[in-house]
C-alpha cells in the first residue's frame, strides 16, 4: 500500500483584481505518495503552476487560497495552510522545495554559486561549516563539477544554472521536490541529462517529485501517475500507462492526438477553440465547447471526478 506524503483536498485559488475575480484553481484533490513521481499536465492558464504554489503556500496577493486543505505527512502530520509564518519557513525547503519555472533567472547575478547554496542552508539552521562542506556534494549530486561553486551565474550555461537550482532545491534534504516547467527552456540533451539525474535522486534519496509541464511526452517518460488539468480542475488522473494507453476524457484524448512523435506516421490534430475565461462563471463542463462528443447535459452540469478503474478517475458525463 503506497503511503501518502502530501494530500491536497478541494483546493480553490482565486486571483482578485479591482474588476474581476479569476478562479484559477477550482477545487482540486490530489495525492502524492512517498517515492512517487507525479506529472501534472495541461495547457498554459489551466492553473497548474498556481496549484503547485499552494503546496508551499506561496500564493500571494492578488491570489488567495479560498478553501481547501493541504496535509503533509512528515514526521508529524502538518496542515500546511494553517502554518504560522515561522513554521512555514521551516516547512518550505526542509520538507518541500521547488525548482521554479524560468529558474535560470532565479539566481542572484552578483553572488557566487557557493554563497547562494549556502545561504539557503544557513537560513534553515545548518552550521556554516557543514553548509560549506555540503555545497560540493550537492553540486555533484546535480551533475556539476564542484569547481563551479566559485562561478557567478552569468558564467554558466542555461543547463548548468538549472542544475544549480536543482542543487539548491535539494540543499535542505526535502522529501518532495516540485519542478515547474524545469526543463522547458533547455535543449533535449540537457533535459534528458537533468531528468536522468532527478530519477536517480528518487532512487537514491527516496524523494518524491512533482513535474508540472505541458510536455506530455516528457511525462510519459518519467511519471508514475499523471493528473490532467483543464480550466482549474483535474479532468482525469491515473497511472501513467492508463493515461497514455487507455485515456478516457475527450480532452486527454485530444491532447494526445495533438502532439507529433518521432516515428509515428499519424496526422496530428489540434484542439479547436480556446480554454474558457476563468473570470466568468462556467456552466457545465468547461471543455464542452471544444469537445466533439459533447451532448446537452455537458453544457448544463459540470461533471464530478468519478472512479472508473484501478486508481483511474475521470470527470466526464460519457462515463457517469
Amino acid at each position: 500500500m503506497p503511503e501518502p506524503l502530501l494530500e491536497v483536498k478541494n483546493i480553490q485559488v482565486e486571483y482578485r483584481s479591482k474588476d474581476r475575480v479569476v478562479k484559477a484553481v477550482r477545487g482540486v484533490n490530489l495525492r502524492i505518495n512517498k517515492r512517487e513521481i507525479i506529472g501534472i499536465v495541461g495547457e498554459s492558464g489551466c492553473g497548474k503552476s498556481t496549484l503547485a504554489m499552494t503546496f508551499l503556500k506561496l500564493v500571494d496577493i492578488p491570489g488567495k487560497i479560498t478553501s481547501g486543505e493541504i496535509i503533509y505527512h512528515g514526521k508529524t502530520d502538518i496542515d500546511v495552510l494553517k502554518l504560522k509564518p515561522s513554521a512555514l519557513r521551516k516547512y518550505r525547503w526542509k520538507e518541500v522545495s521547488m525548482i521554479f519555472q524560468g529558474s535560470m533567472n532565479a539566481l542572484n547575478p552578483v553572488t557566487r554559486i557557493e554563497e547562494q547554496i549556502m545561504d539557503t542552508m544557513i537560513e534553515h539552521g545548518y552550521e556554516q561549516e557543514t553548509a560549506m562542506k555540503r555545497v560540493d556534494e550537492l553540486l555533484r549530486i546535480a551533475g556539476l563539477n564542484p569547481s563551479v561553486k566559485r562561478s557567478f551565474p552569468h558564467e554558466l550555461s542555461g543547463g548548468m544554472k538549472q542544475r544549480v537550482n536543482i542543487a539548491i532545491s535539494l540543499a535542505c534534504e526535502p522529501s518532495l521536490v516540485i519542478a515547474d516547467e524545469a526543463t522547458t527552456a533547455l535543449d533535449v540533451v540537457v533535459q534528458r541529462q537533468i531528468m536522468a539525474r532527478l530519477l536517480k535522486l528518487r532512487d537514491e534519496l527516496g524523494i518524491s517529485l512533482v513535474f508540472i509541464t505541458h510536455d506530455i511526452s516528457l511525462v510519459a517518460n518519467i511519471a508514475d501517475r499523471v493528473y490532467v488539468m483543464y480550466a482549474g480542475k483535474i479532468v482525469e488522473n491515473g497511472p501513467v500507462k492508463e493515461i497514455f494507453h487507455n485515456p478516457k476524457h475527450p480532452y486527454t484524448i485530444a491532447l494526445l492526438n495533438s502532439i507529433p512523435s518521432i516515428n509515428r506516421d499519424k496526422k496530428i490534430k489540434g484542439i479547436p477553440g480556446t480554454p474558457p475565461d476563468l473570470s466568468k462563471p462556467i456552466n457545465g463542463c468547461p471543455f464542452a465547447p471544444r469537445c466533439s462528443k459533447a451532448f446537452d447535459k455537458c453544457h448544463e452540469i459540470e461533471p464530478d471526478l468519478i472512479s472508473i478503474g484501478q486508481d483511474h478517475e475521470v470527470s466526464c458525463h460519457l462515463y457517469g
Binding site: 541529462q193 531528468m195 539525474r197 501513467v240 512523435s261
Partner: peptide, 14 residues
Amino acid sequence: PIPDPERRWDTSEP
C-alpha cells in the same frame, strides 16, 4: 521523449 510509457528512456545519462 516518446509519448509512450512503454518506451521510456533508460535511466542512464546521455
